[in-house]
């Protein structure tokens, strides 16, 4: 099976006069994990936000799960109709750096709310699904807790469960461990690795170089709004061809 889950071509994005993304193209196969690395301000997060429809692209084209989200017409990104955008929105999930759990809902309800309101699942089905995911995240005993009672690592695992409950076909992570202490980082990365073993298609923007190297199928290095280098992560980390990537990787060995 070689389904292409993400097919991005020549994506451009500016905020005012600042070009944040210049000509971004890449593809991702089903069941693969792609790590996006790069310095702050390189456009990684903006790219992720375009892929998850939190931002709109200025130009270029994008297909998710084989269906277009926007296409390039006369140098402008023209978006599909709302039904299609919504369908693709439901096929993608996003895990945020700062979790963005709903503080007024219990852990269980954080995971059931969208299942019920958006997917129209009934209460029992939604709760069964949530409990399964919580067990998988090793958090079954926290179902009745509120987010403020959890550690950062637990919060992030709840937010992963919340995203998974919607059965996304592609799961995006925006620096999922950047707000966590080192030991909490490990428990979250373990969960993401577990998902990779189950062949979940994932895109992870990360500063965890060991994760990018050891747990992804592909890696992509961005700087200044362009993809400087992409390919097999071992290759990328052990034999960086571009000077900019070499310099970037050196900052982690200091």
């Amino acid at each position: 099976m070689n389904d292409i889950m993400i097919n991005a071509k020549n994506i451009m994005k500016s905020f005012g006069s600042t070009e944040v993304l210049k000509d971004i193209s890449f593809t991702l196969e089903k069941g693969h994990v792609l790590s996006i690395i790069g310095p702050s301000g390189s456009g990684k997060s903006t790219l992720l936000r375009i892929l998850t429809q939190l931002e709109t692209a200025d130009a270029g084209s994008l297909e998710l799960v084989g269906k277009p989200l926007f296409t390039n017409v006369d140098g402008k990104a023209v978006y599909e109709n709302i039904a299609q955008r919504r369908e693709l929105n439901l096929k993608t999930g996003l895990v945020f750096q700062n979790f963005n759990l709903f503080p007024h809902f219990s852990v269980l309800r954080n995971i059931t709310e969208a299942q019920r309101a958006v997917l129209k699942r009934d209460k029992d089905e939604a709760e069964a699904k949530a409990m399964d995911l919580l067990k998988k995240m090793n958090l079954a005993d926290k179902a009745k807790s509120y987010p403020c009672e959890l550690s950062g690592g637990q919060k992030q695992r709840v937010s992963i469960a919340r995203a998974l409950a919607m059965d996304p076909e592609i799961l995006f992570f925006d620096e999922p461990t950047s707000a966590l202490d080192p030991e909490l980082t490990l428990e979250v990365l373990k969960v993401i690795r577990g998902l990779a073993e189950e062949k979940m298609t994932m895109v992870v923007v990360t500063h965890e170089m060991n994760f990018a190297k050891g747990s992804s199928d592909e890696a992509l290095f961005m700087d200044g709004g362009v993809i400087v280098e992409k390919g097999n992560p071992t290759e990328l980390f052990d034999n960086p061809k571009e000077e900019r990537l070499r310099r970037f990787l050196n900052t982690f060995n200091a």
């Binding site: 429809q53 929105n89 945020f96 709310e113 969208a114 997917l119 919607m166």
Partner: peptide, 14 residues
């Protein structure tokens, strides 16, 4: 209100 609350809601399809 944290804009993350709006974004999380949007991503979940509310």
């Amino acid at each position: 209100m944290d804009k993350g609350q709006y974004e999380a809601s949007q991503v979940l399809g509310f």
